[in-house]
Design a binder for these strands. Structure first.
Lengths: 203, 203
DNA sequence: CAATGACTATGACGATTGTCATATTTCAGC
DNA sequence: GCTGAAATATGACAATCGTCATAGTCATTG
């Protein structure tokens, strides 16, 4: 596969970003971590680090949204929620609570590029828009599943926002406390909220 | 006041961290932003940037927890929640959705210090512990208020975790989307969850 | 075989970083 | 007013950053 090097760089960047944040992940770290050639970075990503970050964000977004959508279709809203949370728990525990969410990292961390881009607000907003798009994507999957179960559009939107936001926050809290306890607590409460909303809708 | 310079540096660091993240905030930025003398930084913070970050985290933690605890005591759980969310909304809108939560920034962003500390895991954990302590502090205030209203210890702990985690995640999402809509949605749902839990407890 | 293109290797560049050493200033307390 | 400590100013240091230029390798074509 000719795109192996490029893909490894993107996946490695997403992984490092989820562990350290955007600015703490240097391109030299990426090539070290993925055992890829350093000279290829400007070849595969002519727009530099900003492009690599952007591709890492959309990559991480799809990596979550694709199985999430499948789980929602196969197992319903509650099953999809369980699968969503389980995947985050797996990532946290597999990395010793080192890796969080790379999309959240972009949403929190402001990328400080080369001197010419220091005040380039447009380029900055582009990364934020990408992160926002990923969140909106996840939210939309949740929202559609809730709609299918008979909830109103407004309620579905609100609950989807609550689910995505609370899980993102919880993952960060788990990383800080090196414990999955917050995830357990949030999972229980979210399941109660959704089951209550669903039973209320079909009543 | 002799501590004015020091305090301005801490507050400025917290502000910049909430806007850009930890690593995108340089000490030169802090002194530029706060109009404080650069030479004083090693005087007031002999342990360097790591100490400044640590003090900024605990400062930001108290800045939230003190009014939060007061609101919880004065206006009850729901009123306290409203005040909690309102303060975040104020900060987001006052800065044009630039400033998020500096504590979350520390929880997501890994500080990359000088070469001698690159592999110093202990010093790294210290900052994470501090962020975790702030989250635990906020959670504890919420938890105590719920306990006072008659909820069980387990339920109070779970709901407190949900509230803090979801709001942290929501603030980051608002920053990404440059909109307070997620905060509106989460606020409505959290209020419904808490009122339902309270009425269930006193029944 | 030649050659054309994609890909890799390596070193250098200016800029910025955190830190430190060394003045210089400020200002209580005597 | 003098003195000594606290605070501030300034410049330099090594290290690292993202980027780029140049040269080398390699495979797939004609």
């Amino acid at each position: 596969m000719t795109t192996t090097t490029r893909d490894k760089m993107i996946a490695g960047a997403a992984d490092l970003m989820s562990r350290r944040g955007v600015n703490a992940t240097s391109m030299r770290d990426v090539v070290r971590h993925t055992a890829t050639p350093r000279g290829s970075i400007s070849h595969h990503f002519p727009d530099g680090k900003r492009q690599l970050i952007a591709e890492a964000v959309t990559f991480a977004g799809k990596q979550v949204s694709i199985p999430l959508e499948k789980a929602m279709n196969d197992r319903g809203v509650i099953g999809g929620l369980k699968a969503f949370i389980a995947s985050w728990r797996r990532q946290l525990e597999a990395t010793g609570f080192e890796a969080g969410c790379p999309v959240l990292a972009v949403a929190v961390d402001r990328y400080v590029g080369e001197a010419s881009d220091r005040d380039d607000e447009a380029a900055q907003q582009h990364l934020l828009d990408l992160a926002d798009g990923v969140f909106a994507d996840w939210r939309q999957i949740m929202r559609a599943a809730l709609l299918r179960e008979g909830l109103t559009a407004e309620r579905s939107e609100r609950l989807a926002t609550l689910v995505v936001a609370s899980i993102e926050g919880t993952v960060a809290m788990c990383r800080a406390s090196r414990s999955a306890d917050p995830l357990d607590h949030v999972q229980q409460e979210l399941e109660m909220v959704l089951t209550a909303a669903l039973s209320q809708a079909t009543r």
